[in-house]
Nucleic acid binder design. Structure first.
Lengths: 344, 344
DNA sequence: CTGTTAGCGCATTCAC
DNA sequence: GTGAATGCGCTAACAG
């Protein structure tokens, strides 16, 4: 069943069918109605491949994430997909798993399907891997790290804002000895978070002893190890700020294992505000970097680019603020850990 | 840049380029090499839309889930996507959010893109919504609930196996008063779980008092409410089995709020084994319904259907077992709740 | 305002 | 074993 079939049955030409379906206003309402009637009766759906071939637009956006199972990404995928549907786009989803080979295959797949744009919402991305797409003038949108090139948009994250709120919040609870569990050094976003933390501490005249910054790896285990280290210090912290929520959850797990009560004995703050943060006990106070907002900005950036008549539109910039979300993992500084309350 | 461009530069016909790229064995190795050289130099990638148009195969599989942000689904999407890439397929991802309108739009999108098959991995699905796909002889694979029709495969879940293990495990810990928090009544899978629970209890000669079965809704809040109800009973349970993990997590949250220690005062068992179950404290003992396995079976079912020469292949059946995963939320039955240990 | 026609990029006949 | 020609389903240009 194709457009000719419809044309024959509606006793019009294929051109008219095409116009009617695409709601070209100049078509005679009578004919249009006749066409739609047949279309509905037969359950006809235009073939997108054929359309794409002739129009040169696939109406597909690529979406690159690190790992779908990383709790940071499902919200992004969901929002992006929702917007795509609303605008008659499909999404070609790929995950890199921090693997160059996967990234290359992603790029190949996107080019083969002739995507109209690509959002790269990973935490850090090797430069140059996307040159193939840039050469083909495919609109790209990055978070934080994109190159300054035409057709390339960037979403800049304001880490400072939320982190400042977090530090102020802890200071108001009379915490002075505040530790930071950093993310992996190869992630630009992790470095930016750490820098923002130090700056926020400096603004309040709070000192950051070197041993108060320990390296995590953005996983639960890394968070557990980090708190282990911190609590072995002569003067352990009363509050821990983490580079991401999974780390914070690890910190809380280790606190539990050590017989420390959160927030009574230790305050914990995360970063990202993944859904999961609400589900743990106690719910995690965290710096929100809205995933839905991020997805929305990325999608709209792409839409802006494809809408552009003159494709000379230079590099655009978008911004996303971070904000502290208060839950129940922070409290007044205690003088020190109290007696164990573990369950055994 | 298209196939003609390659043909010209390699001084062969477009037909030869096509054959070389598709690795047709009868093509002269000399010519093939020449073609590949040009292809690599120019960074040529064949246009999938054109290929799809002429071949009649889109190499796209539809994947329908309930909600990407439901922790049950990210693993499924990830595994499905991985297999797709390995087999040169793309996936068209849609979520229904239990909404008929969204489901209809899903079907339309899938037909427009001419998907080669669709996996419906939701918890329950209105019959008839996919008739449009069935009529077009698109291979379908369901979990549990699919109609018995040609081109339609079904993955049957063996709820009994894991649930029996769970009940036996609790019985071995001398629990007798075991409650079950059921899922919504409109979900066939929830009913099946509840039935399997009752049967498993019966097998051990354990009685299930009516008040020991309370209705949840597969959310955290539902779990919290359910435990609240149960603990208000004259003879509250010492163990709670839940229809899914989110419910169990809610039960644990409520237990915490009530000053009950898990597992000392209350044993909790979930169902599904979502990733999250490992991240909460204490890690949740649960009946695993492997999401990666489910995705793999679904994908392979689809591959089997498209590989089929004679499309008369009737309805196929696949099976997925469930298994108890022991973690730290279950323990010996206590005589009753001990003193409060809440943090205030 | 409508119909005829050409061609989007590719795979696949069919001759050679 | 290779090339010229045809058509997949649709939109856009043009002529009427």
């Amino acid at each position: 069943m194709d457009i000719r079939e419809i044309a024959k049955r509606a006793k019009v030409s294929t051109a008219t069918v095409s116009r009617a379906i695409n709601r070209v206003p100049t078509v005679d309402p009578q004919l249009a109605k006749r066409v739609w009637k047949v279309v509905d009766e037969l359950g006809y759906y235009p073939n997108t491949q054929a359309r794409a071939l002739v129009s040169g637009k696939s109406r597909i956006f690529g979406l690159v994430v690190s790992e779908i199972t990383n709790p940071f990404f499902p919200e992004i995928v969901q929002t992006f997909e929702e917007l795509a549907v609303q605008n008659d786009y499909e999404i070609l989803l790929t995950s890199t798993v921090h693997d160059t080979k996967r990234m290359k295959s992603s790029v190949r797949r996107m080019i083969e399907r002739r995507v109209d744009g690509v959002a790269i919402l990973t935490f850090g991305m090797e430069e140059g891997l996307l040159d193939d797409l840039r050469l083909r003038k495919v609109p790209l949108v990055f978070v934080d790290v994109g190159p300054d090139a035409p057709q390339v948009s960037n979403i800049r994250i304001d880490y400072q804002h939320g982190l400042r709120q977090a530090v102020q919040h802890l200071a108001a609870f009379r915490h002075k000895n505040i530790a930071f569990v950093a993310g992996p050094a190869y992630l630009k976003s992790a470095i930016a978070r750490r820098d923002a933390f130090e700056k926020a501490m400096g603004e309040l005249g709070l000192e950051v002893a070197p041993e108060m910054i320990v390296l995590g790896d953005h996983t639960l285990d890394g968070g557990m190890r980090a708190l282990g280290e911190l609590m072995r210090l002569p003067k352990p912290p009363t509050a821990v700020l983490c580079s991401n929520d999974m780390t914070a959850i690890g910190v809380m797990r280790e606190a539990y294992d050590l017989g420390l009560n959160v927030p009574r004995d230790l305050s914990v703050v995360g970063f990202d505000d993944i859904r999961l943060s609400e589900f743990i006990t106690p719910p995690l106070t965290t710096v929100q970097m809205s995933q839905t907002e991020l997805a929305r900005i990325a999608f709209e950036a792409l839409m802006n680019e494809v809408a552009e008549e003159t494709p000379i539109g230079g590099s655009r910039e978008y911004h996303l603020k971070t904000n502290l979300i208060l839950r129940r993992s922070t409290g007044l500084a205690s003088s020190g850990p109290r007696a164990k309350i573990s369950a055994d």
